[in-house]
Design a protein around this nucleic acid. Structure first.
Lengths: 332, 332
DNA sequence: CTGTTAGCGCCTTCAT
DNA sequence: ATGAAGGCGCTAACAG
């Protein structure tokens, strides 16, 4: 139970703590002979360097935090994994944190990152705006914001052009299935939610659909939200001919309800999603959707973050927009 | 950039560091007046207690580690979330760690847990056996092992009876579709993989199928593995009438390939999965599967872990088996 | 190539 | 109700 310290190893090996420290860090040459003895003693005693003490002393934790709104939407595990790979490559561990898109959780994790003196944070905020990240930057933490930030922001950011993507999907639908379209989206306050709605409206406006004819229902960014949304749409006197869903989880739920109602997709009702998560090709019919590549998002964010943490880059905020792509499958 | 310390707050507020410390910890009465001043100064200066220093001193990190083999299998996010909820309730943060079922990663995370002096670990090991967790216990870390452990093990454990579950699923298939069955499983070395294969074989034996007639293909525990597995089965001279898949991800891939080959499910080929992940009801036909409740697994594991960490329980290892349930839907 | 020593920021006796 | 001071385990000057 008593933890073995560097001192125990040093005295048992008959050397100074400095030497033991350097055997492990490799920051200074140590004679091969001494190395062997120290390592032998360390394993025999079961010594594990105390990372807490190391961090306190060195001011580095070698750890980053990845904050996501919903770990059960497979977009985020995919994203997080590729981000972790990049971080691990550079020697950083990562904490994966789930906020459920709640402001309190988002703030708590940012606070946590400050308290633990983490080296970096990649933040997907649904409630806290980019400006909420600036205290971290002031504290010397590398920060990458997923989503749009003001052009002058000191923060690095990676985003998709969600508005354009939604407009593109909507335009496609409009052209193929006419003007009787509807939107199910998931979160009015979250940037993705808002942007995708704006994109939908923009495309409708461009097609000459009067504002008051717009059918838009607000639910949640998950399958249950999609079910409820589609149920609401089908309960309307005039059913839509096509439905744009603000993400694939919503689309999954929408497909489910439409099929259970005996409708054929896309013959009776067409459905388009966003993200192109893995399940998009599991459902029948396979989802037509806008791919926003999760892996690429993670990789880009990881690269920006690492370059900050290693000091390879120290300039003003860099802003990356990753291209999206409409993937036409069977649902529309 | 210069981090604010407790000392900065103390001097600015005109009190001792001791007092500031107690204002935040609440471990000792502090006059209301002083409290107000200290808190005001702290927020004004942007003081965040240094969790690293706190941990070094107090020997507690208030953090647990959740180790999973594959974060992209939605069973694990579901599990992890409910575990996190239990842990958070008790005031613990959690690190979610993904091993990709690689031994090196599993060992690295255990090492990491030791080094960071974490308070608890919940480990789902595909390579490292339960005995590999004992050093953590010796170091005073609370440990819960997901899966079977030797009865005399000091470790707490939570598991499903995977062998019985697979036998049950197989028995159901055998009775309904006759003896021409096959198994696609995902990992010979991992306990779940082995147990589910044994359960399959046990049920086949009980039905009087000779050992040499058993059709068993080994792939990976994911959708691609299911695709390859089904392709191999369909390439055989005598195609199976029914296929048991060692988890739902495999089943998803299997369904995909069977459908693409123009087969009707379950009329031409029946398919049964394991786990009952959320996607099991997305695919057409909806999967018949054995439910091993991920949320419940997380909740039970969390409860055991927390009781150890708080000292509410200090006895020998407790071993929980969670019941499974065959869910008959459309695929078999 | 190796050793001595001063903190990193905080909590916690002990003292008042 | 408040302070002073030691030490948690380690790294990085500084000193040979």
């Amino acid at each position: 139970m008593a933890r073995i310290t560097i001192e125990d190893v040093a005295s048992e090996a008959g050397v100074s703590v400095t030497t033991v420290s350097h055997v492990f860090s490799g920051n200074r040459p140590v004679s091969t002979e001494t190395q062997i003895i120290v390592r032998e003693v360390a394993t025999r005693l079961g010594y594990h360097p105390n990372a807490i003490a190391q961090s306190l002393r060195s001011q580095r934790t070698n750890t980053i935090m990845i904050v996501v709104p919903d770990i059960t939407n497979s977009f985020y595990p995919d994203y997080a994994r590729s981000l972790q790979d990049v971080a691990a490559e550079a020697g950083f561990h990562s904490l994966l944190c789930n906020t459920d898109a709640r402001e309190a959780e988002e703030l708590a994790f940012l606070d946590e990152a400050m308290s633990r003196r983490l080296d970096g944070v990649v933040f997907t905020g649904f409630r806290v705006p980019p400006s909420g990240l600036e205290p971290l930057v002031d504290a010397g933490i590398a920060v990458v914001c997923i989503g749009s930030v003001p052009t002058a922001s000191p923060l690095d950011s990676v985003r998709f052009d969600d508005r354009a993507a939604a407009a593109e999907a909507t335009g496609f639908i409009l052209e193929r299935y006419g003007h009787r379209v509807a939107l199910i989206y998931g979160d009015e306050e979250a940037p993705v939610g808002r942007e995708r709605r704006l994109g939908f409206e923009q495309a409708c406006r461009a097609a000459g659909i009067p504002r008051e004819d717009l059918v838009v229902v607000l639910e949640e960014f998950n399958r249950a939200g999609g079910r409820r949304g589609m149920a609401r749409l089908l309960a309307r006197p005039e059913r839509p001919r096509a439905v744009v869903c603000a993400n694939d989880m919503i689309a999954l739920g929408a497909v489910e309800v439409a099929r259970d109602a005996g409708m054929r997709i896309p013959e009776d009702i067409a459905i388009v999603g966003h993200d192109d998560v893995d399940v998009a090709t599991v459902v029948t019919p396979r989802l037509t959707t806008v791919r926003t590549d999760a892996r690429r998002l993670g990789a880009e964010a990881g690269a920006l973050l690492v370059s900050r943490m290693t000091g390879a880059y120290t300039g003003p905020g860099r802003h990356v927009t990753i291209p999206h792509e409409l993937i036409v499958r069977e649902s529309a």
